[in-house]
Amino acid sequence: MQDPEYQPPVNPLPPAVVVVFLIMAGIEAMLSLGEAGMIGGRDAVGWRLGMIRDYGFSGDLFDWMLANGRFPLQEVARLVTYPFIHLGFTQSLFAMVLLLALGKMVAEVMGQFAFLTLFFVSGIGGAVIYALLLNDPIWLVGGYPSTYGLIGGYTFVLWRTLEGQGARGAEQLRAFTLIALLMAIQLIWGILFVVGTQWVAELAGFVCGFALSFVMAPGEWARMRDRMRRR
Rank of each mutant, 00 (worst) to 15 (best):
D3E: 13
P4Y: 15
Q7C: 09
P8M: 15
P9M: 04
P9V: 10
P9R: 01
P12Q: 11
P15S: 12
A16E: 10
F21K: 02
L22S: 14
I23H: 09
I23G: 06
G26I: 07
A29G: 10
L31E: 01
L31H: 03
L31G: 00
G34S: 05
E35V: 06
E35Q: 09
G37V: 04
M38E: 08
G40Q: 00
A44K: 07
A44M: 05
V45R: 13
G46F: 06
L49E: 13
D54A: 09
S58Q: 01
S58I: 00
G59T: 11
L61N: 05
D63W: 12
W64E: 14
G69R: 10
R70C: 00
F71R: 04
P72D: 05
P72F: 08
V76D: 08
A77R: 12
A77P: 04
R78T: 12
R78I: 01
V80F: 06
V80A: 10
Y82S: 09
P83F: 02
F84L: 11
I85S: 04
H86M: 10
H86N: 15
L87F: 08
G88L: 12
F89I: 14
F89A: 10
Q91F: 02
Q91A: 15
Q91C: 08
F94R: 14
F94T: 14
A95V: 06
A95M: 07
V97A: 15
V97Q: 05
L99W: 00
A101N: 14
L102H: 04
M105S: 14
M105E: 11
V106K: 01
V106R: 06
A107L: 09
E108R: 11
E108Y: 00
F113C: 07
F113R: 12
T117N: 01
L118W: 00
F120W: 03
V121L: 15
S122T: 10
G126C: 07
G126F: 01
A127H: 03
A127K: 03
I129P: 02
I129A: 13
L132M: 08
L134Q: 05
N135S: 14
N135Q: 08
N135K: 07
N135F: 12
I138E: 06
L140V: 05
L140Q: 08
V141I: 14
G143N: 09
G143C: 11
T147H: 01
T147M: 05
Y148C: 06
L150C: 06
G153D: 02
Y154D: 01
V157P: 02
W159L: 12
R160G: 03
T161A: 09
T161Y: 12
T161Q: 06
T161H: 04
E163H: 09
G166L: 05
A167Q: 07
A167V: 03
G169M: 06
G169A: 08
G169T: 05
E171H: 07
A175L: 10
A175Y: 04
A180R: 03
M183S: 08
I185K: 10
I188Y: 06
I188S: 13
W189Y: 04
L192R: 06
L192F: 09
V194L: 05
V194A: 13
V195Q: 12
G196S: 11
E202N: 15
A204Q: 03
G205V: 02
G205D: 02
G205Y: 02
F206L: 08
F206Q: 02
C208R: 00
G209M: 08
A211L: 15
S213L: 13
F214E: 08
V215Y: 05
E220P: 06
W221H: 13
R223I: 13
R223V: 03
M228R: 11
